[in-house]
C-alpha cells in the first residue's frame, strides 16, 4: 500500500512540475506578446509624428525673417503677441488691450509681431484654429492682416463648435476690404496652413505654452492689462 502511495505521490510531483513548467513558458510568451504590443503602439505614434514632420512653408508678406509672425508697426520696442483665433482669453485680451496696442503702434512706439498659433484645434470639429490662422496669412497677402484679425475676434465662434466655415471667413475678409476672388482662393486652398504649423511649432519651441502670451522686448507680461503693457513698453524704451 505504502509503495503504491509513494508512486502516486511521485507521479503527482512530476505532473505538477511539468504543469508549472508549461505555465512558466506560457507566461513568458504572454509577457513577450504584451511588450511587443506596447512597442508597436509606440512606433505607431513615432511614425504618425514623422509623417507630418518637416513641411516646406511659405511665409506671407509682412512676416518676420524667420517666418514666425506678422509685423505691424515699426517702433523701437517689440511686442510679441501669441494668439489663437479660437481662444476666448485672446478675445478678452483684444477687447481690453487692443486699443492701447493700436495707439502704441500709431504713436510709433512699438513694433508688434503677431503670432497666430493653432493651439486649440481639438476645440473645434473643423480645425478652425488652423484654418483661421492660415486665412490670416491670406489677409496679410492682401495687406489687411490687422483688420482681419480684429474682425475674427469680433466674430469668434464658441469652443467645441464647428467654428466658422471657409465661406464665412471669406465673407469677413471681403468686409475688411480684401479681394473676394484672390483671398477666397487662398483660404480655400489652405495656402498658408504649412506656415501656421511653422508658427505654432516655433512658438512651442519658444516655450509659449498658452494663449494669449504677450512679450515686451522678450519679457512676458503675465497680467496683460493696458496699464501693465504701457508700463512695460515705457520701461523697455528707456
Amino acid at each position: 500500500m505504502s509503495s503504491r502511495k509513494g508512486r502516486k505521490d511521485a507521479a503527482r510531483v512530476v505532473r505538477e512540475h511539468l504543469a508549472r513548467e508549461r505555465r512558466r513558458k506560457r507566461t513568458l510568451w504572454i509577457s513577450i506578446g504584451a511588450v511587443a504590443v506596447l512597442v508597436v503602439a509606440g512606433l505607431i505614434g513615432w511614425s504618425a509624428l514623422s509623417s507630418q514632420g518637416s513641411r516646406e512653408f511659405t511665409a506671407p508678406p509682412g512676416a518676420t525673417g524667420d517666418g514666425t509672425g506678422i509685423v505691424v508697426g515699426n517702433g523701437p520696442v517689440t511686442i510679441d503677441i501669441y494668439e489663437d483665433y479660437l481662444c476666448p482669453a485672446c478675445k478678452q485680451f483684444e477687447q481690453t488691450s487692443g486699443a492701447t496696442i493700436d495707439k502704441l503702434i500709431n504713436d510709433g512706439k512699438v513694433r508688434v509681431v503677431y503670432h497666430p498659433v493653432a493651439y486649440l484645434n481639438r476645440f473645434s470639429s473643423t480645425e478652425y484654429s488652423t484654418r483661421a490662422s492660415a486665412a490670416s496669412g491670406c489677409a496679410a497677402e492682401g495687406g489687411e492682416f490687422h483688420a482681419f484679425g480684429k474682425a475674427l475676434f469680433d466674430k469668434q465662434p464658441p469652443e467645441n463648435s464647428a467654428g466658422l466655415s471657409n465661406d464665412e471667413l471669406i465673407d469677413i475678409g471681403a468686409e475688411v476690404g480684401l479681394n473676394r476672388d484672390s483671398f477666397g482662393a487662398c483660404v480655400r486652398d489652405g495656402k498658408f496652413k504649412p506656415w501656421t504649423a511653422h508658427v505654432s511649432e516655433e512658438a512651442t519651441r519658444a516655450k509659449v505654452t498658452g494663449t494669449p502670451t504677450v512679450l515686451v522686448n522678450g519679457q512676458q507680461v503675465r497680467e496683460w492689462t493696458p496699464e501693465n503693457i504701457t508700463a512695460a513698453v515705457e520701461a523697455a524704451g528707456r
Binding site: 504572454i30 509577457s31 511588450v35 504590443v37 506596447l38 503602439a41 509606440g42 505614434g45
Partner: peptide, 23 residues
C-alpha cells in the same frame, strides 16, 4: 506623439487581461 498610443495599448491589454502583472 508616442504617449497616447502607449496609453491606448495599456488600456486594451488591461481590458483583455493580458499580461496583467507586467502591464
Amino acid at each position: 506623439a508616442v504617449l497616447p498610443f502607449v496609453e491606448l495599448a495599456l488600456g486594451v491589454l488591461l481590458l483583455l487581461g493580458l499580461a496583467t502583472r507586467l502591464v
